[in-house]
Structures are given as C-alpha cells and as structure tokens.
Design a protein around this nucleic acid. Structure first.
Lengths: 380, 380
DNA sequence: CTGAAAGCGCTTACAG
DNA sequence: CTGAAAGCGCTTACAG
C-alpha cells in the first residue's frame, strides 16, 4: 500500500490539554506510577484537604475562599487533572449515563434500520443537551442472560429499549427493572415502563382521508406476513378507516406481500390481470419497502404509477425519495421519538415527584408526493 | 388518542430475574433502604466473608470449597444480586468499555451517514463479541472542551474516533491521550494513534482498470468542492491512475460538482453540449451521491446511462441500489472497518506486548453494475 | 480454604 | 472557610 498518500503529520495540533506540567514532581510521580492525577495529588500540591479540592472542583461557592479556589483550579489545570467519573458515579449512586438497548437485527444497510438510527440520533442529541452520556447495548439473537448484567450493572441510570419484536425476551425484565425503562416503538404497553411510539392509526387515517378526497373509491391494502406483529396495527387502522366508507366494489382487497417487498412481483401480476374497472385505484402499503418495490416493478407489468393506481408507503424512509415517482408516505418523526425517550428518562430521574411512567404518542407527518394522485377519470 | 389499540398487557412475562426472594429479610431491608444487594449482603446472609463471596462470584476455582461456592451462588441468585460494575471498574482501573466518538453532523437520514452507521455496527458487534461495552460520544459542532471530559473520565478504556473532518479540533488531544485511540476513516495519520481506513487509491485504480478494459478512453472525473478534504485522495487517485494511460482527446476532464450532487444538472447541461465524439465515455464520480444525481437526471438532458456514457460512484451506499440503472461503485467494507477499530483497541488493551499503534488499510470492493458498460461502438 | 484489611477516587455530612 | 472521616461496592494481596 505504498502508494497510499496520507499526510504523515497532524494537520491540527492544539496545546496539550492533558498531561500538564511534566516537570512537576507530582505529575512525574503519577506518570511514573502509571496512574492519573487525583484530588489527592492536587490537595498535596496545593496544601489543602481533598474536601476543599472537591468543593472547588464542584464549584460549591462559599465553601472556599477565592484564593484557595484559584490555587486549586490553577493546580488542576497545570497537572492535567481529569475527574474519574467512575468514582463519582459510585458515590453519587448515579452514572449520568443512559442506555440504549438495540436488537441485533440492527443491520444498518437495510432501510428499515433508519428507524433505529434516527431514533438513536435524537436520543444522543437530547442526552447530550441534558449532559447525559449514552451507552449502547446490543441484544444478541437469541438473547442471552448476560444482557441483563450489561444493563443492570449500575453503569446506566435509565434505559431506552428500541425493541421492535413484540416477543422480546426482555419484556419480563423491563417490568421489574429497578431503573426507569422506556419502550420505544413497540406495541406493547406496560404499567411499569414508559413508552414512546408513533400514532400509526391516526396517520393512516389522514392518509386515507386524503386519498378519499382525491377521489379514490377502490382501496387495497398491501401488507406483510401476518406472523410479524409489527404491521398488525397498521392493518387494523386500514380496516377501521376504510371500513366505514362507501367503496366501489365492496370490501377492500388485502394483498399479502412480505416485509421487504420481495413478492411485489406476484402482487403486480395479479393486479395486471384485473380490468381497470375492477382494479384498486390505490394501493395502501403497510411500509415503504413494500411500496417502493411496487412502484419500481409496476412498469414491468405494464402498469403506471400513479396513472393506473396510486401507491402509498408508510415510514418515510429515504428509499421513498429515491424512486420515481417519489413515494407518498407517512414520515415517522424518528429523531423526535429518540429525543422524547431520553426526555422521559431524564425527567423521571431528575424529578422524583413527576409521574414515573409516561406513554408518549407522537404524530406522523403526511408526505404527499407523486405516487399519490387523483385516480384517472375521477370526478373528485 | 383513544383509538390507539395497544395490547394492554405484556405478551411475554418471564420469571422475575431480579428482586429475588422478596421475603428474605436481607432483600427486604435492602429494598426498603432503596439500595441494591451487594457482596456484603450475600456475605452476611451466607455467613462468609466478602472476599469469599467475591472469589466465588469471580469463579476463582480452588479458593473456595464446593459447598461454600454453592451456597454463595444460590444466595446471589435468590437475592437477585447484580454486580456493580462501577465499583469493579474503579478497582480494576479499567471499565471494559470502549468509546465511539462521532461528529455531530452524524445526520442519519443522509446517505453519507451510512458510513457512521455501518462502522458503528461493526464496532458494536466486535465489542460485544469481546465482552466490551460501548459508549457513544457526540462531538458538538463547534466542539467544546467538555468533550475531553466526556472521553477522558475513566469510563472508557479506548476510543474509536470516527471523525471525517481532517481539521477536527481534537487531533491535538488524540495525540496525547492516555488511552488508546484509533482514528477511523480520516486521512490523517499520527504516530501516536492507530487508524483504520479504506484503500480508496487502490480501489479507484481497479475501477479505472475495469473501465479501460471495457474500452473506455475518454474519462471525466466528477468531484466535489475543493475545500472539503474528504475527496482529495480520490481525486489524486484518479489523476494517478488515468494519467499514465493513452487517452483520446488529451487530459481527462475534471468537473466540479458538490458533495451532494446538487449541481449535477449544470454538469449534465455542459455534457449535453458536447458532441458524442468529444464527450467522455465515462464519468468517474468521487462519491455515490454525485453519481446517483447524474444518473437520475441524465434523461432530462436527453442523455442515457450507460449508452451515452457510463457513470461510476464511490462508497457503495444504498442509494446506488435504488436508482436505474443501478450504480457501479466501490463498496467500502463499513462494518469491517468498525470491527477492525474495535479489534485494534482491544488488542492494545489486552496485549500490552503488542505494537500499540496499528494502521489498518482495508480494501474496497468493486460493485460492477449496470451504470458501467462498454462505450457505444467500442472495439474493446 | 477463609477472612481482615487496604484501597480504587471520589462526595458528603459533620465538626470545628 | 477548612479538614478528618466515613463510605460508595467492589477486588486483591496477604496472612492465617
């Protein structure tokens, strides 16, 4: 790899922020012993007690004289003191750290995982804002008992569990955990754990109302396998919102695809067989992947979107941006979900008075794009 | 949100794994005092010393009798003992936790951020495999001094810095950090910090060789703004690999786009003006976003890919999968990068004998897809 | 095989 | 304003 041209020196070298005064006997001794500078070192160097050092470092105004304060701060700076937060957490009985539990199927290259990732981002940001650190715990599949040790080891003060599987083995534990837990994006509700989720039901209602007002009267639902509980709420919402309306041709079609849209081809084949008068004017898909697969493969079956039928997704992932026509869908407020999860944890940690359990339901946002249009010949 | 149908009970409730024997006086006392079960509680309950409890719990065979071992383990289980790893880390002087430093521009919805995300995934997996926990630290923009406190507080044993900006303010610190640091995906090399990066130079060479063998003789590079150092290595690689060849029409064209491909339109307008005999037969783009933008907008300018020219990307992000024709590109082995970073840290932590600094360069993989084809009328 | 004791690096009443 | 002391929950020589 000789040809790899990399600059061999650092482009930025700021003043050495640690290590401090290398010539101080204290520093030298500490370094030689391979240990860090501690409050004890500072106390010795300045000639005060460690109590005073601690008080100064914690900024407990009034408990020390200005001169002492100056001397201690200067010394800390000079010696390159860094607080050991392990020790601090141990005595304070809180680590100022939040945990995020992820299932291992967190395979990022997959669009679905924008969910994890968007949530994580919001969580990280809110945690940072409130001065909490964040630890990530991956739950292996199948889950081992170790996972509880990883989560219940005093290293985190609260846990956001981003568990999409309704049958996650940890649900029993969540319920008895002695740290606050917030369940993110799963259907399950527990009286002992908080939750943050999106109002799929409401959003799907808005989507269908929008389609209706455009003139759609023949709806079909394209959903995934039944086994996977994740889409069942969307299916229920579809039935409920479409059910009450006077449709053309009776009950809406329900087409079974798979979560990833691999079977879109089969579904399109069936649809192509239908006469235009029988064919649904809109395919409401239970997630973006299904919808995008339909959109992409429609032309191969001689079907045009949205001329022959409209297609809508659900999730608002980036794939919908990258297909033609762009996908109309419902965007989940991912980073807000994450931020809300962090907020709930921090609130329950810092306001012992507040309600310890909160169930937040966030609204999705309709993204009206080209894959949704009035049906051909509609008299909306 | 009354209509939100959520099952109101948990679908899985496993046997209570913590809390244990609620009737034990020890447990009750601990719970009443709001504190956890400790080795001291077990020692008292069983009637042995905490040393023995610790020895049993640590599995130090030979230091305790089988009967004592059984009693202690049983008791720990019964009381729902959980080790406090803060205390353990404090005495062992290592937290068994690795840190990942991310720049705040980590905005996940953006394809570029598959980089962060893919790396993170590999890192998490490798860390879990080696029984390390992972802490995420976001570096705000502009970076504040606090970031060092967050990273240098004894809560992590090593740090993987996923910093794309070559001018990150932390480079000075990385160099003097007392914990092992591995720089991920940045061009900078330091003698004091390890690094993991991809061999863009080599990969681009393979790509160009492939194009050459298909018959391409008129190359153009489409790259981003110059200010951003991130693409400069790819630009150098392009010049070097194309430079030595006998091209049609002299030196290759270099077209300035932007990192996101927003200016693809302007570039296509210029290309459309060229006669087919003058036009490049292949556009080598410095990243996927640029390439995809070109592919998507080409038809609006009456240009077809790959008939009028081939287009190649660089990165291997998912966007390239979702455009038509699919993008030929170089896939970075993202999760392997992350895994390698974790591996380097863990090695240097656990084998004090091994070389403390390692510079790993991983190969990219050519993804030959439809946007790259032989030029029309080529006599390759 | 077992245990008393020291100590990791802090914070926090408490006494002066 | 300052400091001696206890203690957070562990692990680890060390002595028996």
């Amino acid at each position: 790899m000789v040809h790899k041209r990399k600059s061999n020196s650092l482009s930025t070298v700021s003043a050495n922020p640690v290590g401090g005064d290398a010539s101080s006997p204290t520093t030298r001794r500490a370094k030689a012993a391979g240990r860090s500078i501690t409050v004890k070192d500072i106390a010795a160097e300045v000639g005060v007690s460690i109590t005073t050092v601690s008080n100064v470092l914690l900024g407990k105004e009034g408990t020390y004289s200005p001169e002492t304060g100056e001397k201690v701060k200067e010394c800390a700076r000079r010696l390159g003191y860094r607080r050991n937060n392990l020790a601090r957490s141990l005595v304070r009985q809180r680590s100022q750290t939040l945990g995020v539990l992820l299932e291992e199927r967190f395979n990022f290259s997959h669009p679905e995982n924008q969910y994890f990732v968007g949530v994580l981002q919001g969580f990280l940001q809110e945690a940072a804002r409130r001065r909490y650190q964040v630890k990530i715990v991956m739950q292996a599949n199948p889950p081992s008992d170790e996972i509880i040790s990883a989560v219940d080891d005093a290293s985190i003060d609260g846990l956001a569990a981003v568990v999409l599987s309704p049958d996650n083995a940890l649900f029993g534990w969540f319920d008895h955990a002695r740290l606050p837990v917030v369940l993110v994006g799963c259907e399950t509700r527990s009286p002992k754990a908080s939750s943050v989720d999106v109002d799929d039901y409401e959003s799907l209602g808005e989507l269908i109302e929008q389609a209706w007002s455009l003139g759609h009267r023949r709806f079909a639902l394209v959903t995934g396998e039944n086994e996977h509980g994740a889409l069942s709420e969307r299916e229920r919402a579809f039935s409920a919102h479409v059910g009450g309306r006077r449709l053309d041709g009776g009950a809406p079609l329900v087409l079974r695809c798979d979560m990833e849209g691999h079977k879109a081809d089969e579904i399109l084949r069936e649809l192509a067989k239908l006469s235009a008068a029988k064919r649904p004017t809109i395919l409401v898909c239970a997630n973006d992947l299904i919808a995008v697969s339909i959109v992409r493969q429609a032309s191969a079956h001689g079907l045009r979107v949205p001329e022959d039928f409209s297609v809508t997704g659900f999730d608002g992932f980036a794939v919908g941006d990258w297909c033609t026509p762009r996908l109309a869908t419902v965007r989940q407020p991912l980073s807000r979900i994450g931020a809300k999860a962090a907020e709930i944890l921090i609130e329950s940690l810092e306001n012992p008075g507040a309600a310890p359990i909160q169930h937040a339901v966030l609204p999705g946002r309709l993204l009206l794009r080209e894959s949704l249009a009035a049906p051909s010949g509609a008299s909306a």
